[in-house]
């Protein structure tokens, strides 16, 4: 292992890791927002929107991110919708993740007993107040492990961004291998950088899940 070389390319990998982190976080936030809106549309049985949402969830969950990205990046410009690579990555991740987040939130909301909603309504709370103060807090606790699993899954999915010419970690490693045959060092840096991003997330997820599983409200 050539440490001098590694030191010389560290800034390059730092920049790439920052890109992965930045686009990943933006995509995940958008995905969570999409998921929340879709889950609300399903919960409130909003007529047409509910059907569209269901179709979207199936579409996003049954196609690979890479194919979604190719379609957005290479296909859509032909009908006049152009995106730069970074926006494309974020939109693609949000499209994919929105479906998974919808499922996470929807199952959380569904897991709250219907009679809990009724007991809030019987106290005179409006539907919105009931959702906000009674259903959502309980659903959030139930959805948290699935949500965290989605966050980790989506962060890992960013590793295909290089396909739409985003200069992320994969792109950088591939580049260095192709140009200078620095295979060992490049793979080492690649794994190291992903560990640095994913290990804390994964530990946080485990910690969170354990806390929620072994303790409910009030212990």
């Amino acid at each position: 292992m050539d440490w001098a070389y590694i030191e010389s390319v560290l800034p390059l990998y730092g920049k790439a890791a920052w890109l992965t982190l930045r686009t990943g976080t933006a995509g995940i936030l958008l995905a969570a927002l999409t998921g929340l809106l879709c889950a609300a549309a399903i919960h409130w049985r909003i007529p047409v929107l509910r059907k569209i949402t269901a179709a979207y969830v199936e579409l996003s969950r049954n196609t690979p991110l890479l194919v979604q990205l190719f379609f957005i990046y290479y296909g859509l410009p032909k009908i006049g919708i152009k995106t730069d690579p970074e926006a494309c990555g974020i939109i693609g991740l949000a499209f994919l993740g929105g479906g998974y987040m919808t499922e996470a939130f929807r199952s959380g909301v569904e897991a709250v007993d219907r009679i809990q909603e009724e007991s809030a309504l019987s106290l005179g709370l409006t539907r919105f107040q009931t959702f906000l103060h009674v259903i959502l807090p309980q659903a959030a606790a139930i959805s948290a492990p699935a949500f965290m699993a989605n966050v980790i899954f989506l962060m890992k999915e960013t590793s295909v961004f290089s396909a739409v010419s985003l200069m992320d970690l994969m792109f950088t490693a591939k580049d260095q291998i192709g140009l200078y045959y620095r295979t060992t060092e490049s793979l080492f840096l690649l794994v190291g950088a992903y560990l640095l991003i994913l290990l804390p997330l994964s530990l946080l997820g485990t910690f969170w899940e354990r806390r929620l599983r072994h303790a409910g409200f009030g212990t």
Binding site: S159, I177, L187, V191, L199
Partner: peptide, 19 residues
């Protein structure tokens, strides 16, 4: 297996074994 993106695992297998 869980901690690494599959893309990275593919890369390790494809380039790493050669090396």
């Amino acid at each position: 297996i869980h901690i690494m993106p599959q893309m990275v695992l593919l890369f390790l297998m494809y380039f790493g074994t050669t090396r």
